[in-house]
């Protein structure tokens, strides 16, 4: 039991990072980024490429991969999502994110095939025993990294000028604009940060579990579940939602059967949407019902 809870929390940390970017983008721009899972999976493949090509340790690879995620995400917002929202509607943006995610998945499948991959650095096989609980080194490292990343994002949003601009825009785009905030740049920045975290979580995921290109849908849906659990827009909410989801997933896997993991997650999602659409911590869920 204790072992399961520990595993669940360790897994949950990674889920939190995977969701926090989605949450930020949704909270600030009210756009559901259906390509979010693509950034996650893309991060995992980038880590794989750097590992097999340059023997670069995945933790070190986080830096270039998150930077890359930021640039791609910001450009994506600037040149694709933004124009789509302006020309059409949020639904148009949704369709565009869906369409482009298919393009990337198709590309990844062609390059890497649909086979299951993983990234296994040298320490992937170490583990530590504390009492009855075994902790894999790689999971612990991923978890600590996840905590550091989320804390860094929370600090960024709270203390920096740009972080405050993001939060102000999330409250009211118009008001922020009237105070001299360039909303377009804030949007690009938000998308960049969100995508960087998605790509970063992909690296962590690549370390602790196998992955395929087609899994992107799953990561988008997980991110959504985490956001629904924790509430939109806040790193703390994403952390809480991620840990809860990690626990739920691991407990289900151990005591009910791995087959039911997604079923249970889905039930949680539906129940939350119906009972408490603002998330456990509560936040502005504008368009739900």
């Amino acid at each position: 039991m204790l072992q399961t809870i520990v595993n669940g929390l360790l897994y949950g940390g990674t889920l939190s990072v995977a969701a926090v970017g989605f949450s930020l983008i949704f909270g600030v721009m009210n756009v559901i980024n259906l390509a979010h899972g693509v950034f996650v999976v893309g991060g995992a493949y980038a880590a794989l490429a750097l590992w097999t090509g340059l023997r670069l340790d995945p933790i070190l690879a986080l830096v270039p991969i998150m930077a890359g995620g930021f640039v791609v995400g910001a450009a994506y917002q600037r040149f694709v999502i933004g124009p789509a929202v302006r020309r059409g509607s949020p639904v148009a943006a949704l369709l565009v994110t869906f369409g482009l995610s298919l393009v990337v998945v198709n590309g990844l499948t062609i390059v890497y095939s649909s086979a299951v991959r993983n990234v296994s650095p040298a320490y992937a096989f170490f583990s530590v025993r504390i009492g009855d609980v075994t902790i894999d080194a790689v999971r612990a490292i991923a978890f600590v990294t996840a905590l550091v990343l989320i804390a860094a994002l929370a600090l960024f949003l709270r203390t920096t000028v740009w972080g405050r601009m993001i939060r102000a825009t999330a409250q009211s785009e118009l008001a922020a604009r009237l105070c001299g905030v360039d909303a377009r740049r804030v949007y690009a920045l938000t998308f960049g940060v969100g995508s960087a975290f998605a790509a970063g979580s992909g690296v962590l995921i690549g370390m602790i579990m196998p992955f395929t290109p087609a899994e992107e849908v799953q990561w988008t849906v997980y991110a959504f579940v985490v956001v629904v659990l924790g509430g939109v827009g806040s790193p703390a909410g994403a952390m809480l939602g991620g840990l809860l989801l990690g626990l739920a997933a691991t407990l289900t896997q151990t005591y009910v059967g791995p087959v039911y993991t997604n079923v249970v997650m889905f039930m949680i999602l539906l129940a939350m949407l119906l009972v408490r659409p603002n998330g456990i911590l509560g936040s502005a869920f504008r368009a739900s019902r």
């Binding site: 799953q218 849906v221 959504f224 119906l274 368009a287 739900s288 019902r289």
Partner: peptide, 17 residues
Amino acid sequence: RLRGHYFTIAMLAVALV
């Protein structure tokens, strides 16, 4: 009971499950 984006993504989850 869900509207907009929420319905869309919930259907995605239904298909996945």
